[in-house]
């Protein structure tokens, strides 16, 4: 078989495994890990469009996640609408926010852009935490019991698993389509060298803004999915720095700027995080920071390209064999 056949067989196997997982998961605990993996993969894939492909490392994507998480519960709390109706509103608001903060922050490069995004996200978290309309520090709650299927409130997590899997497939398909189009090439060119890209006619600011808007809207979608499942959001779980950092870590671990990197990163990080938390019991969230910090150090020191880059380098060590395959 050629390497292309192997790749196709591997992909088919991975898809089959993802589809069959809820049937194999022996307990709600394992099913919950599966759902959390998919959610992390969706949000990190959304982040990856701006941070991975266009090279603008946002550490404030929690602001878009939070907008997406709040809107469904806000329309439910204010008007009794099904939370689902808040999803497009959240995505639209995230695009608006992206346009507003993108204009000034995308002028900054490298670390300065990252720091500006942290500052904006923290500012929004604090503002939301003091704003009574959106529940201030207490947050918002969804319908306790479903009024109908449209509330998307299920006791079992299996429906969420398949909804999230479908959305992830959509996000990956969109990313793949983007990679083959002019905007995708322009984003990679801006990342690789902004001055050179501009000399070839690439309008770099417009390219970065487009990447930010697309990335923000999909991150908001991830936030909405999260809140449909949990039925609850507060400033920390929506806009907290941990939300922003997780997207960066998941994508960087698997390989930022690659199509499947965020999914691979989520498949490794989320179970590791979950097991580490259950071993050490109550003090879990503190340990999460330690785990994230450790991964940042390891990835930055040994393999800034993530696991996908590592794999590529290992394949290059034995080019004869891979060519013969």
């Amino acid at each position: 078989m050629s390497s292309d056949h192997w790749r196709r067989a591997g992909a088919a196997l991975a898809v089959a495994a993802l589809l069959a997982y809820p049937l194999a998961a022996s307990s709600p605990y394992y099913l919950d890990i599966g759902v959390t993996v998919l959610l992390a993969a969706i949000s990190a894939s959304a982040w990856n469009i701006l941070g991975g492909f266009a090279g603008q490392v946002s550490v404030g994507h929690g602001m878009f996640f939070g907008v997406g998480a709040y809107l469904p519960l806000l329309v439910y709390t204010l008007w009794g609408w099904p939370p689902m109706a808040g999803i497009p509103l959240g995505m639209l608001l995230a695009v608006g926010l992206a346009a507003l903060i993108g204009a000034p922050t995308l002028r900054l490069t490298g670390h300065y852009f990252s720091m500006a995004t942290i500052a904006v996200a923290e500012l929004i978290r604090i503002l939301v935490g003091t704003w009574g309309l959106v529940g201030a520090a207490i947050g918002l709650q969804g319908p306790a019991t479903a009024r109908g299927w449209w509330d998307l409130t299920f006791r079992d997590e299996t429906p969420y698993y398949y909804i999230f899997l479908g959305v992830l497939a959509g996000v990956l398909a969109l990313t793949h389509a983007l990679q083959g189009r002019r905007l995708g090439y322009y984003m990679r060119a801006v990342k690789a060298g902004e001055a050179a890209a501009r000399s070839l006619g690439v309008a770099s600011r417009r390219t970065k803004l487009a990447a930010l808007a697309l990335s923000a809207s999909l991150t908001a979608l991830a936030g909405s999915l999260y809140v449909l499942k949990t039925g609850f959001v507060d400033p920390d779980s929506g806009f907290g720095i941990l939300v922003s950092v997780q997207m960066v870590i998941v994508a960087a671990l698997g390989g930022a700027g690659t199509l499947y990197g965020p999914l691979v990163g989520a498949l490794i990080l989320i179970p590791a995080q979950s097991w580490a938390n259950s071993w050490l019991g109550g003090g879990g969230s503190g340990l999460t920071f330690v785990l994230y910090g450790g991964i940042i150090v390891l990835v930055a020191r040994f393999e800034p390209g993530g696991l996908f880059e590592l794999r590529r380098r290992m394949l290059r060590w034995r080019p004869e064999r891979s060519r013969a395959a």
Binding site: G180, R181, R182, Y185, Y186, R188, A189, A192, G193, A195, A196, A197, S199, L200, G201, V202, G257
Partner: peptide, 28 residues
């Protein structure tokens, strides 16, 4: 061109040239 070559290191030679070609050929 640039005094110190500023090619897009992580893109292939073909992709580098495609970025230039996109200016007048929007379709991939």
């Amino acid at each position: 061109t640039f005094q110190v070559p500023a090619t897009f290191a992580d893109m292939t030679v073909l992709e580098n040239v495609m970025v230039g070609a996109f200016l007048h050929h929007p379709g991939a």
